[in-house]
Every structure is written in structure tokens, then in C-alpha cells.
Design a protein around this nucleic acid. Sequence first.
RNA 1: GCGGUCGUAGUCUAGCCUGGUUAGGACCCCGGCUUCCCAAGCCGGGUACUCGGGUUCGAAUCCCGGCGACCGCACCA
Length: 514
Amino acid sequence: MKQPKDKYEVVSEMGKRRGYFWQSYEIYGGVGGFITYGPLGSLLKRRLEEKFRRFYLQPLAILEIETSVIMPENVLEASGHVENFKEPTVECTKCKRKFRADHLLQEFGEMTDTETEKMALQSVVDELKSHNIRCPDCGGDFNKAEQFMTMFTTTIGPYSDSVGYGRPEAAQGIFVEFKRIFESARGRLPLGVAQIGHALRNEISPRQGPVRLREFTIIDIEFFFDPEDKKCLIINDVGDETLRFVLAENKLKGITEPVTITIKEALNKGIIKEEWQAYFMAQAKRFLVEMGVPEDQQRFIEKLDYERAHYSMQGFDQEVYLERWGWTEVSGHNYRTDFDLSRHMKASGVDLTAFKESEDGGKRFVPHVIEPSFGLDRLVYVALEYAYTKRNKRTVLSLPRDLTPMQVSVFPLMNKDGLLEKADEVYHLLVNEGFTVDWDSSGSIGRRYARADEVGTPLGITIDYGTLEDGTVTLRDRDSWKQVRSKLAELPSLLHGYFCNRLNFEDLGQIIER
RNA sequence: GCGGUCGUAGUCUAGCCUGGUUAGGACCCCGGCUUCCCAAGCCGGGUACUCGGGUUCGAAUCCCGGCGACCGCACCA
């Protein structure tokens, strides 16, 4: 704890002090894996969500739904989660170290993951014995095996013995409701459906603040298409976008240096198999750039066979470099094929196929799915870490202007001579225009600018004696500390222009030299 | 979950070893004065010994347990 503070530490301190986020249940000592967003944090999260909708969902007319967090057992049995979210672990009798039994069998027993997946708990131990697998560290042997269930379990109804789980992803809500959604979309394909909501995973040891939570907000997009008609019509919009890849074949050789490839090339060389997947990955990169993460701080990792989730046929993780934790996953891009819909079709007996007319009558088929999936809490943290800068020993949170919780702050230069009243007028004018406005009349003007900088408010509006005389105010820019003078009456339209990126700061008025 | 280190206000910290003052300081926050634009100054105010138990006349200090944090192992489908 005596080392120089890293960014996670300073961002967390600032987060607590100014109300971005902190660990939940602090007054009872805190519980790991849960965080609370304070007033500024929940605003930031909301803005990020809104930006995501604007940027990622709306251009493709992706539909958004909301389903419940508790899911009955049969849904997650059908999806394969009940089976796959259990991890068989064994403990060495000598050194007490714990291992994943299935990983041991795959590594030393030359078994495939499909073989180990099917095994019962006792046969895991038997197999370890029959393959004579011993502790890789000390050579001791294993006796007992335990299952660790990473889904939260509950019962549904007061006296009911029906088991329910907290959903480990929002995706299943979409698959389960596919029939009605598809119908209300009048059978259109391709069809994107998204859900932004909480998901639960009972992590064994979540020690990484907002980066690894037991309850978190996930953005799952299921993009359904006809596997025989899978052209992405807008792929050219992203064809020249370059992504940095760490490829599976290189990973096996121990090479982690990324290669930079355009989307076009990646598709031609078969690095990404599906055009829609390529499109979503390119957009994911662009989104992070707009959030303030430069290209060279991002990369895409191709998942190896055994690293992929049970439903995934090809998968990439988008990673962002964080100071404390290194490369950190912020989104996953999986080709889930028809795995989920087929499983639910089989388990429920309900037809989840699509129909497509053609000259010879048409065909019924189960749509395939490309899934981009984002961890929203990680994005919030990433935005904060990348925005956190210092200027003249003062903290400046340089969030993009469409993400800042507070858009403008109103400062009466003095607390007298009618300046307070005038400032109050300005405050209400802007609130009524729909802006998120802060108010600060405490301390010197410099101190107030500093406070606004620290929480990332991009514009300060100072009401001074000039305001009383000619109806002009001073606008101050968070990043450059430059000031311009503009007419109060024009403020609403100027600010609207500024916040939808039509106007730069310099366009807002007459530059002031001091 | 295991091992090691640790836990004093919103933040950083002194004190703990060797038990004994109103637990000290800095930043910060609030109010007032002052101040015509970048954490200025003056006055006043504010918040802390992680929780529970034990030893003791007396515990921030010693002992045990819980909770939490950090590092390592494992885990992160």
C-alpha cells in the first residue's frame, strides 16, 4: 500500500469522494463483487448507455427488450448453463492446492472437453486415478471432488421447490422470447435484438472493483440471420477500419504481439468467418475510440477452442489496456450459430424457425446468431480511467462531452450585488432547456473551476457584473481553460450545438484574453 | 477458498513496539468576511481509531474471531 498510487487507486478515491462509485454495503463492512453508483456515476452510466444506443443499436434498427433476472431452471438447463456453469474442482491431499479437474484431464489425460463435460463428479475422480494424474506441483494425489456453481440459485414462490437462477447473461431472455419478438418484427431478417440489464455470476473471488462484479450490467445483442444469406450489406462502411488482432495460431506459438489488419483483409483471409461479426467488431472498436480509448490501447483476442463458451463457434474478446490489470476484456464477439434457438426448440417443443419464401415454395430454418456482448460497468470504469488526467497538479476528468454527468456548471462570480439572483435565473433557463446543470457558489472562482474539472463538467458559465450590464456571460472550457464571452440569449442554441458536436468551444463566443 | 501483509475522518497520515491527556497534523468539506476569473487570505465549524468479544482499574495500542483491502496461488465458462 506504500507504493505510488496507480490509476485504479486514484480513480477509486475520486469516485468515492465525488460520488461516481464505491463498494456496496460499506456501513456493514462491504461485500466484494457489488458496487454502488453514486449520483454522478449513475448519470455517467446512463449517458454511456444512451450513447451506445445511438451508436450501436439505432443505425441497424436493433430492437430492445427487457426480461426478468430470475430464470426458471428449465431455461438454463436447455441453454446448457446448468451443466457448464459448474466447475469440478479437486484438491491435492498433500499441498492443498485446488485445480480444475476437467483441465487436468484435458491436459494430462488427453481427454477432450466434450468428454470431460459429460462426466459425473465421482467419475472425474476415478478418471484422474486411472490416468494416474498427480498434483502437477508436488506430486501428491487427489481424493475428493467438489462442484462450484457460479450461478446464483434461488427458489421461485414461497413454498415451491421449483429452482430458479439469477441469469448469468441477458442473452437467454432474448432467445426464450424470440418467437414473439420475431412476430412483432413481422418476420424480418436479419433482425437484431438487444437487452441491457443486470446479470449475476457468483464469482469465487472478485477482487477487481468495477471490473469484476457478481452483479453487473450486461449489454447483449443477438443478431439473427439466415445462414444461407449472410451478407452484411453495410460491410463497406467498415471495410478499411483496422483492428489489432492476437490470433489463435500465434497464441499457440506463444506470440502475443498483435497484427494490424483491415476488416476487408480479415474477412478475405478467413480470420473472421462472418461478415456481420466483422461489422460489429469494427463498430466496437470505433465506439471505444469515441469513448476516449486510442486504437493502440485496444486489441481483439481470438479465443482458442477450449477457451470458448459452450455455445460459441468462433469468438473474439475485445480488450482495453488498464494500468492495474493490463489487458482487460470489455466485450465478447461470438458466433453462437443456431445453438441456443435449437436447444430451446428441442426442450420446449415450440417451433422457433423462420420461414423464407422462394420460387420452389420456401424453406424453414433456425436463424443463426452473431452476438456482441459488452460489460457496461467495465466501460464506465474504462471511460473514467482514460479521462483521468492532471493539469497543474489539478485533476481534470476529460470525459467526452456526450458522456459527462454534468454538462454545465453555473458560477455567480460574487455572492452579492444581485449576481446570485441573476445566476439563479441562468440556472433555470438552462435546466428548462433540458441541460444537466450544476450550481456552485462556494469558495473562490478558481476553486469552483477546479471542482468542476475534477468531475469532468466541460463548460463553466460565470455570471459577473458584465452580465448585469449587457447580458453576456463567460464560458470556460474544462480542457484548455480558455474563455469566451457570449450572449445569454443565445446560450441555449449554442449549447445544444456544442453538445451534439456541431460546434467547438471556440465557436461559442468571443475569445477572452486575460 | 488457501498463504502472506494490512485496516485511524471524504483523502493522506502521526500515535501502536513499551496500554494511561480533550487521538495530533495536512489536504478537503461547510458557514462568514474578503475577493472582478483558475484550489489565494483571515475567522469559525465538521467528520476517524473496521466490527464483535477477551485481558485490564484503564485498550487505537495486547490476545481471539468476523468483515474488508492488497500481493501470490486458484478461479474468471
